[in-house]
Nucleic acid binder design. Structure first.
Lengths: 207, 207
DNA sequence: CAAAAAAATGAAAAGTGGTTCACTTCTTTT
DNA sequence: AAAAGAAGTGAACCACTTTTCATTTTTTTG
């Protein structure tokens, strides 16, 4: 008669789901959203388009998850960088460097996550993608303010500005072929820019 | 027989072209790209879709022009702000303020120009849209470096960062209803952020 | 090893939105 | 005012994707 959910089956189902999500990410990482239509995703995952819809209610839902995963990795890396010891400026610098270096390494994916035009259906993900970074930066800034290292300021807005600055400064280079020599200077410039945007230490501006 | 181009006719042709472009801009400014499909544009302009294609070879070409016009106004305003007298930091501050204030005034359009997801066909315009700003900022930075007010740095990258910072910092507020009280502080924060990212005057860091 | 239920298929449907083109209307010219 | 040519129309066309669903295959259970 019927069949109850066996662990064996459940495992396979999860694996298929995984394969689909991986296929989608892989296509995006290689060819951008343009290359990631459901037909291509299904083919890449080795399943039929119909099956894809048994696992994800819609393409948007699929990308919700794919995006989430890809972002999470990046965010984890930055969170880790943020939690290393050091003063606010050092920590900030480390996060920016981490972000920039990883983005330049995985150019195509970074471009897709940061800037590539996607259909509006999926755009919500991108906005969400930037939020965690803003949160990381805002946290560092707030702690800097508390400890007196940084002048009081609107941490949220400044953090948003930093995310934007990094993204925009990398965009050009991201869409060009790698240029290893320039990368270090590029990263250094972006890092300095962010740290400086915090302003000087309050002591030096006390009247 | 045939008819030669009369000034009367030529004027009308130009007017129709104008109406189409205006209609497109108006739709974008009110409802974003989503609301600006060719059918809607034609309807708004009071012409048929077919006629639209007599004036513009394709939708992308139409938006090329529409974008161009909308941007030009903004860019002109910023260029004007940049050319007022003052030192680099003052001039930079003025441009940022100008940009931010105008963006907040024309929220919907600014959002469309800066960040709204568009179909890839049109995305090229957006990249181009940011370029002139980068150029304005880069010009100010370079002059600052030449005059010794600003430490030597990669003007192009820093300028890109500023454009990104401004855009990103405004994005949240741009998609929310106006909040007049907060706007001035927001603008002040963004301006300070950009000016500070230039770093301190070289004199104070000379050893 | 049937019978039952779920997994999987893939071609067809439905939706989307830009573009075309055969045709009509209006303007100019003689 | 008639001929000629340009402006203007809008429904049909097309390319492209997502989504569905009737059908087949696989897995489980009694």
């Amino acid at each position: 008669m019927a069949y109850r959910r066996t662990t064996k089956m459940a495992t396979r189902l999860a694996a298929t789901r995984e394969r689909i999500a991986d296929a989608a990410l892989s296509l995006v990482a290689r060819g951008g959203y343009g290359a990631a239509d459901v037909t291509a995703i299904a083919a890449e995952a080795g399943v039929s388009t119909g099956l894809l819809y048994r696992y994800f209610p819609s393409k948007a839902d699929l990308f919700d998850e794919v995006f989430q995963r890809a972002s999470q990795r990046e965010i984890d890396a930055c969170t880790a960088a943020a939690s290393l010891p050091g003063n606010s400026r050092e920590r900030l610098a480390r996060v920016v460097e981490t972000f920039a270096r990883r983005a330049l390494r995985g150019r195509r994916l970074a471009w897709a996550l940061l800037a590539e035009p996607v259909d509006p259906l999926i755009e919500a993900d991108r906005v969400r993608f930037r939020e965690p970074y803003r949160a990381i930066f805002a946290g560092i800034i707030r702690r800097g303010i508390e400890s007196g290292e940084v002048a009081p300021q609107d941490a949220r807005t400044v953090a948003a500005g930093m995310v934007g600055a990094i993204a925009e400064a990398l965009l050009g280079p991201l869409s060009e072929p790698p240029h290893p020599d320039d990368e270090d200077t590029l990263i250094a410039t972006v890092t300095r820019l962010c740290v400086q945007s915090l302003g000087q230490k309050p002591e030096s501006t006390i009247r």
